[in-house]
Amino acid sequence: MIKFENISFGYNDHKVLDGVSFDIPDGESRVIMGPSGSGKSTILRLILGLDCPWSGKIFIDGLNICGMKLRDMQKIRKQIAMVFQDGALFDSMTVGENVGFYLLEYSDKKGSEIEDEVREMLHFVDLDPDIIDTLPEELSGGMRRRVAVARALLSTNPRLMLFDEPTTGLDPQATENVLNLMIKLREVKNISVIIVTHQIADALKLTSKYIVIRKGLVVFDGNIDQLRDCDSSEMSDFLAPFKKSIVEVVNKKIV
């Protein structure tokens, strides 16, 4: 379970999160939405311990990770994987070296065994295993994200995956592929996902529970029905262009 308790954080003197609190129970997925610069990606970085909050507490499975020792934090990181915006692939390494990065660093497995696992994982994320010797710069945006998912899966064997803007900058076909992959992760591997996006249309396809962040504050935390009925002034202008999509999703669910 992930619990944010009154978290405040910023960069230099600029406050990004101002007293954010929410819970995500074990096994549940969430989409964190909000306009650009509202502090969504910062939440993912805080969950992974890449940044430390100015104040407040973050609990993962009941343990406060703020100020936690590196060794203990590494144990938590083994269960949580993150797919960064645009993949954050190591651009001087091939796709195979990227996906097998963790195994090459830490395991005693032979090269051929690692290659087999890499090929298998590339197949799982619906990529041609023959791109193993390709450099990341030769891949499309959608392929890079799927390689990043493969790398995360092979590295940490996670029970939770964090996605930072997974569909930003992708064409409709690539967006569909990445969304399907995230659904597949939940259904086949039983991995919960926390997705940060400002593209509400995509968010509606992924899960039925949402957190909306605006100006560093949680302005909504609830399900699709509550989202449809939400009439707060802070939400209306942000949700207005998507009201029709939200109603469609709710109706589809009822049918």
Partner: peptide, 16 residues
Amino acid sequence: SMKSSHQLDAMVAFGI
């Protein structure tokens, strides 16, 4: 350039 493309963060996330 690794820092600005989050490759360093990815390393930390993998425990490296």
